[in-house]
Amino acid sequence: MNQTIAQNLRVLAIVPAYNEEITIQSVVQEIVDKVPGIVVCVVNDGSYDNTADVAKKSGAVVISHPFNMGIGAAVQTGFIYAIRNNFDVAVQVDADGQHDPSFIMKMVSDLTQMNADVVSGSRFIKKGGYKSSFLRRIGIVIFEIINRLVVGQKITDSTSGFRAFSKRAIVFLADKYPEDYPEPEVLIILKKNGYKVIEIPVEMRNRQGGQSSIKGYKSLHYMAKVILAILMQSVKREAK
C-alpha cells in the first residue's frame, strides 16, 4: 500500500468551522503535522467566537463568511477557493477533532490510484472504533437501505464529513453544492452525474469539544429531513 502523496499534487484541507475556537488549533496543527505539504483552509462560517484568529495563528488560510450560512455553503466556499488557487485534491475535515488526519494520506492516494472522484471515510466498514446507541444503529441501517436504492451502490456511512475530492468533483461541486444536509446529498448528485465514489474504513474519535448538533428526539427529526432531502435530490432536475 503506497501511502505517499504523489509529488506536485496540490492538496487542500477544507475545514468548515462554526464556533470551534477550542479545537481548531489542534485540528489545524495535526493536519499540517501528519500531511506534509498540505494547505489548510478554515472556512469560518460566521462564528462569534475567536475561531478565525486562532485558526490564522495556527497557520491556516482563513476565509470568513460575513454571516452563518451552514456547513454546505462553507464547504462550497472551500471548493471555490481550491479552484481559484489551483489545487488538485480537496479533503474535507471536521473542525471538532473527530477526524484523525492520519487517514488523509491514505484517502488521497486511494483517490488517485483508484481514479475515484470521492473517497469517503466510513466509520462502519470495520467493526469497532465507533460506539453508537441502538437507535443510532437502526438509523444507520435505514440510511444504508435508502442509499442502496437511490445511489445504486452500497454506502455504509453516507453522513460522513471526512472525504477527499478529485479536481473534477471539486469543479462540479463548486458550482452546485446541496445546502441543507449536504453529506448524503453530495454522494447522490455525484453518482447521478457519473462520478466514481468509493468508501474506505476510517476510525473516528470522540469529539474533543462542542457537541453533536443532533441528539435525542432531534435525531428522528433529522432523519426524516435527511431522508426527504435524499429522495428529493434523487429526482431533482439538473440545474442549468
Binding site: V61, I63, S64, H65, F67, M69, I80, Y81, R84
Partner: peptide
Amino acid sequence: IKTLAQKIALLEE
C-alpha cells in the same frame, strides 16, 4: 445572497 457572501469572503482573504 449565498453566492455574494462567498465571493466577499474569498475576496477579503
